[in-house]
Design a protein around this nucleic acid. Structure first.
Length: 99
DNA sequence: AGTAAGGCGGGCA
DNA sequence: GTGCCCGCCTTAC
């Protein structure tokens, strides 16, 4: 319960135009190996209203998955100013937000 | 490069 | 209340 709360909190801390990875997110939440748990939380809770989970991507820069579809996620990120290296990957070097 | 296994919380049976 | 399976992944073989 506390874990998911952290996840949501950190997600909201991500500024517009920046992204983070599930690994980093899991790490700051206490368990760096709980990346799957993080994904599960974001997916099941889908607090897109309170949590911009579209700003969370895979470690390699790929979008990964998204409740509304990866296309939507990509589109949202683009609008926020996130640099994309191609249609499916973001530029982590420029847009990775580190806690 | 591809495949398999892994560690972790949430949700449902 | 307990247990099992799943997931927007990661890492190792």
């Amino acid at each position: 319960m506390d874990f998911s709360n952290k996840v949501f909190l950190f997600c909201q801390k991500i500024p517009s135009g920046k992204v983070t990875t599930y690994s980093e997110l899991a790490r700051v939440c206490g368990s760096k190996k709980a990346v799957r748990a993080v994904g599960n939380i974001l997916n099941k809770n889908r607090d897109f209203n309170n949590v911009p989970c579209h700003r969370v991507v895979c470690k390699n820069g790929e979008i990964g998955g998204y409740v509304f579809g990866t296309k939507k996620k990509k589109d949202l990120l683009k609008k926020e100013g996130v640099i994309f290296v191609n249609e499916t990957k973001v530029n982590l070097d420029k847009c990775l937000f580190r806690f």
